[in-house]
Every structure is written in C-alpha cells, then in structure tokens.
C-alpha cells in the first residue's frame, strides 16, 4: 500500500528526513513513533501529497505521490496534526463539503456523512458550528473528515492528542476496528496506544528509521528487559555479593535504608532471576518484602532507541 524509497526532505538548511525507506502492506496498522522533530510529520505530509520530497520516491497503491498525486489523494484520508477546520460551518456542512470535494457523489454523500458521524460519535453536534465545539469534538470531526470518502489508506498525525481518556479509548477501538479493511499509518506519542493497536511500529529518530518491527519483538530487544527489583532485610554488601555469585547477573545496584536493602538486578539476556533471589533469601533467612520483574513497555524501547547517543 505504501512504498517509500530513500526519501529525503530538506527544509532551508535543515534535513528533516534523511533517506528513509519502508513499506506497508494492505490492512496493516503501522505506528509511526519518534521524538518531536524526528521527521514523522514531514513524511506524512509527503505521503499525503501536501508537499513534494527533496529526493527519493513515495508511492501509495502503486501511484507516485508526486507524478500521480490526484490518484494518490483519492485513495488516502489524511488527518493533519493541527486539525484545520472551517470553523464558520456546522459539522454537517463541513463533512458534506469534504465528501463532495473528495469525489463522493449523489446519494452516497448523505450515507457516508451519516456513517462517519456515527463512527466518530458526532450525531449530537451535527447542527453545531465547529467554532463552538470543544477540542475533543473537533478532533473527531477531523477524523470523520479523513474517513468520509472511505479511503484505502488513512494517514493520521497524532489523532488522539487533546482527547480525554475515554475518548482516547474510543478512538483507539475505532482505529483497531478499521484495521484489516483499511491500511492505517498513525503517529502518536501515546505509547500504550501503539502497543494496543498497531501490528507494526516504525521508530524514527533524527530523520532516520531506527527500528521497524512488531511491538512485541521490539520489547524483547530492550536491555532493561527482565530487570528485577527486590527488597529484603539484609546488609547491602552481603546482598550484592550473594546475588552476583549467581553468575547469571550482569549488574546489581543496591540502596540501603532502615535495615532494608533495595536491589535492582539486571540479569544476562534471557535469564529470569526471580526464583534464584527467593532461594537466596530463604537460605540466608532474609525477610523478603518485594520481588517484581520490571515489565517492559514500548516506552522503554522508545527511550532506549531515541536517546542512545545521550548516554
């Protein structure tokens, strides 16, 4: 559905996208992650034909975004980052206008507008002026706009920014339900959302793709994976000695307070040390009051990949 090859975007003096290549197959939901300024929006703007690339090519459904931009634009629904809407129109008027503009004709205009309004829960505000709507509603109007012509590909630039937790959950479910039938490329900073919705994640940093994999595989790669935190009543140096003696531990940090010691244990790759810790405590008769394995989140992956050079 998307074919990007060696894409470069240079603004006056700044290289925002530095030769990225990736492809997305039909039906995939791909999360586009990266710190602010990593080149996510630039890439999305090129894919949606808003601006041309400096070099390289981007193809949507086999059509080049530069030479066949009308064909591409007919097949995509793009939701820009800052949610631009004509605020002097009502929700109905706006969606009707957008549907017609995107080539929906005749009776289908009415049915499509009604469908997307229902999907985005906009029925209660149909007749309201967009200028009077809250941020959450505007966000959903923009989402409805992106879907109104039933495009094959949805490009959503931070679709859940500014929504409350309930609305975020609703939009997440909506996006999930659209997968399979539609291809979706979405950028966001809300990482749990990506974990739950996306079948694949692309992490961009400084204009380059740093990782492209399923969320599960990415989390397996993280160094802090399998880290264990434990707290028991013992002397700090005795505890450290006992743990390092296991031989499966790479690093161990201890902090002592009130006779208790808190240890952070980084085991070697693939090792689970929780059982061993329990056995040590049992053997030494140390009172154990905490033993948790750190659950790796996409956030850890994100931080590790995008902050590497700071360390």
């Amino acid at each position: 559905m998307i074919e990007v090859n060696n894409l470069v975007k240079r603004y006056a003096g700044v290289e925002a996208v530095r030769g990225i290549s990736f492809s997305v197959s039909p039906g995939e939901i791909v999360g586009f992650l990266g710190p602010n300024g990593a080149g996510k929006s630039s890439t999305m703007k090129i894919l949606s034909c808003f601006m041309p690339a400096t070099s390289g090519t981007a193809k949507v459904a086999g059509f080049d975004t530069f030479t066949h931009s009308i064909e591409v634009r007919q097949r995509i629904g793009y939701m820009p980052e800052n949610v631009p809407l004509y605020t002097e129109l009502t929700v109905d008027e706006f969606l009707r206008f957008r549907a017609q503009l995107k080539g929906v004709t005749g009776k289908k205009i009415k049915t499509r507008v009604a469908e997307v309004k229902a999907l985005c829960e906009l029925d209660s505000v149909s007749k309201k002026l967009i200028s009077t709507l809250s941020k959450g509603f505007r966000q959903r109007v923009a989402l409805a706009d992106a879907m109104v012509h039933d495009p094959d590909l949805l490009i959503l630039d931070e679709p859940t920014i500014g929504l409350d937790p309930n609305q975020i959950r609703h939009v997440r479910d909506l996006i999930k339900s659209l997968g399979g039938k539609h291809t979706i490329l979405l950028s966001t900073h809300i990482l749990p959302e990506v974990e739950m919705t996306c079948s694949r994640v692309l992490i961009l940093n400084k204009g380059r793709i740093e990782a492209s994999d399923t969320p599960a595989n990415l989390m397996r790669r993280v160094r802090s994976g399998g880290a264990v935190v434990s707290e028991f009543r013992a002397a700090a140096d005795a505890a450290e000695k006992a743990i390092l003696a296991l031989g499966t531990v790479e690093e161990c940090r201890t902090t002592a307070h009130d006779g208790w010691v808190r240890v952070e244990i980084f085991p070697k790759k693939g090792e689970d040390v929780r059982e061993a810790i329990f056995h040590i405590c049992a053997r030494e008769r140390w009172d154990l009051r905490e033993l948790t394995q750190h659950k790796v989140t996409l956030e850890d992956v994100f931080v590790e990949i995008t902050q590497e050079d700071k360390e």
Partner: peptide
C-alpha cells in the same frame, strides 16, 4: 485549512 484543501484530490 490549506493543508486539508490541498490533500483532497
């Protein structure tokens, strides 16, 4: 809104 307009076909 220019962005929305110009990304329509």
């Amino acid at each position: 809104t220019f962005e929305g307009l110009m990304t329509a076909p």
